[in-house]
Amino acid sequence: MSKQVLDRIAQVFGAAILETHSAFGDDTAVVEPSHWLEIARFLRDDPASSMDHFIDLTAVDYPQRSGTRFDVVLHLRSSERLHRVRLKARIGARCANPAADANPAADVAEAALPKIDSLTSVWVGANWFERECFDMFGIAFIGHPDLRRILMYEQFVGYPLRKDYPAAKTQPLLEYRQADNEKLPPFDEHEGMSFGRKTHADRQPGRNLLGFEED
């Protein structure tokens, strides 16, 4: 159904749509990152697509991929026309938007981070999704009003959902205490059984757990 949407943006944007595919009812367009904001705005405003429902925005890390490392993935839905579409933009190896260096909002992030335009001017709800994406993957959204970490704490270094972040690396906010009376298994025989606990194994025939005769 939203194959028509793909055809429409392919028709309007031409070479900015790198590829499209439809599988199992999901329609995906891979677009040029420099046209990310433009295409999103078009999808919202064009009456034939009218994507008024911003569902999700996230990223995927492909460390082995040659060329670009990250996919930014956007899911949209139209509550009028009841169709949905997925947009992807591949960024990471080169600066997505050459004009971004002149943009003061880009100063929030480190210069080395991959960059893409923020969609907060199109859907206000994109705000926290882009913050999460920045927090977890280190993707800088140009023009975002408040690009801070949203889940991790400010002192956290690095971007934990990138594949090169060590899986077991923790960055504690408090220094761990050294316990002086640490017990290790095996524990004492009666450890944790402080009150004469009876189990069904201790049960006498004809008597209940408390030792009284059963009726």
Partner: peptide, 25 residues
């Protein structure tokens, strides 16, 4: 409840060491 009773027992004995509730089986 086992853990709570174990804590009460430890309080009675003035024992501040670490306690672990064991499984019944």
């Amino acid at each position: 409840i086992d853990g709570l009773l174990l804590l009460q027992d430890k309080i009675t004995r003035g024992d501040r060491s670490v306690g672990i509730v064991k499984p019944r089986v």
